[in-house]
Design a binder for these strands. Structure first.
Lengths: 214, 214
DNA sequence: GAATAATCGGTAAAGAAATATGGATAAACT
DNA sequence: AGTTTATCCATATTTCTTTACCGATTATTC
């Protein structure tokens, strides 16, 4: 079975976004070199990535059908059959995620929020009802949501993650700036802004040093 | 000069976070295998990563000094001399970022926000004043901020990014779900939730398939 | 209708990154 | 004090990812 590196997987949504732009502009056919140029990737990488998920072969001198490619990538990424999620932590970040419009495009339905703040409970944020965290184990199994999004402060993250797992969560999308220690069979994906910033800073330093040298 | 892969760079903030937890618990000395176990990394990877930034050699049978290691990583990541940034787009996400407490720990000072919404202008969000985007080219050079954080809708992202670059931005931290096409000498770091979600979904599917097989 | 140019697909090579190995050293234990 | 054990560092190996190459194919041009 073909395996995909995590970097490679992360590129597909980027292709998808660009392809949809092409589609909206009425472009029917795209070639790998064209995509590569737009995204700053190498031609070969794009070609290999697309080969891996395309249902049809490309045509020499032309490329591939935009519409078909969009379908193929969406199918591959699972955007076509939606998964359910809930979010724990409805502070600034959690509210932003609840109001984020693109998740449903990606096949992710956020069904509800959880928090401990009495002011928030039983209200609606982004159209979704907010329940107390203590009710997680009653509500989560009923919602049949596999994915739990964690957007609480770092200090509370491990604890709510454990509650989520105990309530049947299979995957944790962790926005808290801390490492979660969970059983091996639980999928944990970190959105670590500190890591992203570290990469940015380092690249900026390299760039500034290069500029100085000139 | 030693080069660092982007993956490796992203691990340092994670080490740092864990080391600070150890420090708070009064732990003086840590070994690579211990860190590896806590984070789910291999022992060798941790050792190599730490060797690359540590100012002192580790001691057999003991490990390394937590305090020194924290200093070394913070120095390496540039947390010790802070960089300035501004943020464009003060919607849900932008406001969440303006209220995010950890940035100053990471040496990132967000000095101001920019938006086009008249209701927001000249107010304060997260303690930072909000200016009109049109004033970017007047204000940004005066603030001497190299980093511009973009948190506007995808449709506006390319345009504000170009304005930021024209106003002197050297690095763009892009939270908009779109690819930005900017000059090569500008550092662009994307925070792409779609990519992160794609990785999560794929890993979840693999995990669920494995469970089924049992 | 032949020549040219652009793209594809498959395979090979190169390059990076992670992991394993082996000797050395310092602490802990007997 | 000597032996054992845990960890270090340096180097080698393996594995994974990306890039390069090359023949085949099909539009386009003359």
């Amino acid at each position: 079975m073909k395996t995909y590196s995590l970097n490679q997987l992360g590129r597909y949504p980027i292709y998808l976004k660009l392809l949809k732009e092409f589609f909206d502009e009425g472009v029917d056919i795209v070639s790998s070199p064209l995509i590569a140029k737009r995204l700053g990737y190498s031609e070969e990488q794009v070609r290999k990535d697309l080969q891996n998920v395309a249902s049809e072969v490309g045509r020499p001198k032309k490329g591939r059908e935009v519409k078909q490619l969009i379908e193929d990538i969406e199918t591959f990424l699972g955007y076509r059959d939606s998964t359910s999620a809930v979010i724990i932590g409805v502070g600034h970040l959690g509210a932003a995620l609840l109001n984020f419009p693109s998740f449903s495009e990606m096949g992710l339905e956020i069904l509800a929020g959880f928090d401990t703040d009495p002011k928030l409970l039983w209200t609606r944020v982004g159209g979704k009802e907010i329940f107390p965290v203590a009710m997680l184990k009653d509500i989560l199994p009923r919602l049949n949501a596999h994915i739990v999004i964690i957007a609480v402060p770092a200090s509370a993250a491990q604890s709510v993650a454990e509650q989520a797992v105990a309530s049947g969560a299979k995957a944790i999308w962790n926005f808290a700036p801390t490492h979660l220690d969970l059983p091996d069979n639980i999928v944990v994906e970190d959105v670590n802004l500190a890591s992203s910033l570290a990469v940015l800073s380092h690249r900026l330093n390299v760039a500034l040093a290069k500029e100085e040298k000139k």
